[in-house]
Design a protein around this nucleic acid. Sequence first.
DNA 1: GAATTATCTGAACACCCGTTCAAATCAAAG
DNA 2: CTTTGATTTGAACGGGTGTTCAGATAATTC
Lengths: 195, 195
Amino acid sequence: MARTQGSHSDITGPRVREAALRLFAENGYAAVSMRQIAGEVGVQAGALYNYTPDKQSLLFDLMKGHMDDLLRAWAAQSVPETPQMALEQFTRFHIRFHHDRPEAVFVSYMELRNLTPENFEVIEGLRRRYENQLEAILRRGVAAGVFDVADPKIAAMAVIAMLTGVNTWYREEGRLSLPEVEQIYWSMVRKAVSA
Amino acid sequence: MARTQGSHSDITGPRVREAALRLFAENGYAAVSMRQIAGEVGVQAGALYNYTPDKQSLLFDLMKGHMDDLLRAWAAQSVPETPQMALEQFTRFHIRFHHDRPEAVFVSYMELRNLTPENFEVIEGLRRRYENQLEAILRRGVAAGVFDVADPKIAAMAVIAMLTGVNTWYREEGRLSLPEVEQIYWSMVRKAVSA
DNA sequence: GAATTATCTGAACACCCGTTCAAATCAAAG
DNA sequence: CTTTGATTTGAACGGGTGTTCAGATAATTC
């Protein structure tokens, strides 16, 4: 036996990435074997190597893809007039975007240490670019006199940590809808940085 | 060869836990082997089993110990008069305590999914107990009319996520001292929940 | 100083790992 | 319908895994 019916690169490739993402998120990169991923796809381990040079690239591509998606989606947003409006937009965008892809978010935060140093540098750079977006908003608000933060860089880290935290406790079946959560967090963020 | 000079349970036991904590923090539980831990201690892998029934217990004991330390240290704090003072105390306590043991914090946050379900329940319960401390402070402040938070439970999660985030970026050689960081975060927390 | 006990070694157990590759099979092209 | 090329299998490679345990050695007790 070899090539099975209906097999196709366009189909198997995405399925490999999906299976890897799911399993990495659930069990962690180090705890997931190539044979497990292959099993999920319905293929032997050797076949995976038509779609990735190695396990490390599989992880890196997932994380790189996630960060690219994030930066692209943020860049596609409109540019609000005031710093307050920009901060509200960022708050709601961050919560929604991260809510929509919990597995990619989880992997991107948890598996940083399993990247090779070179791959880590790339992801770290992209993350910093995203953080800089918020920092810039805060700086504009400080310059305009509407925000009061002692250190925009640290305030940006604090706000992002707070917002990303939603993913750790939010459940679809829970007591609050996502718009309600957005509203609560926006209220806290607004007050935290306001003059 | 067997028992080596100066070998002692009182010495080796702690060293096993220290090595495990260090290696788990650096490489992740799944990526660290018992032989690696043994190597760090200067002993063969089999000797580790005088100090832990298995690898899982080693992880659990580290996490349980950390959570116990956390709750004990918090319980040892004095009880401030006002909700504002209590919140400031919590903010500064959380930052300092987590700053003092970055490895235990990192392992306790990252390796939850590598716990067996029963062990996970225990750690999760302890974590919830800690979160409830902050939630209670917020509720008292709301009742007293000095805090304005739509949902104390969620506000507690938000504040804790923000504070724990310090560990991801703070460096001893960095631009800010820890007291300065405490001050900045306390200012943000205070404003975020104030009426 | 001999007997006892705590501690550790070293080898073994059964199994899993990421990766490679010739051979087999299937899909598409001519 | 044959040829070609993409895709997959299955076996193999060298090495690593957590854990067990008889036997060896050091510290302690009498």
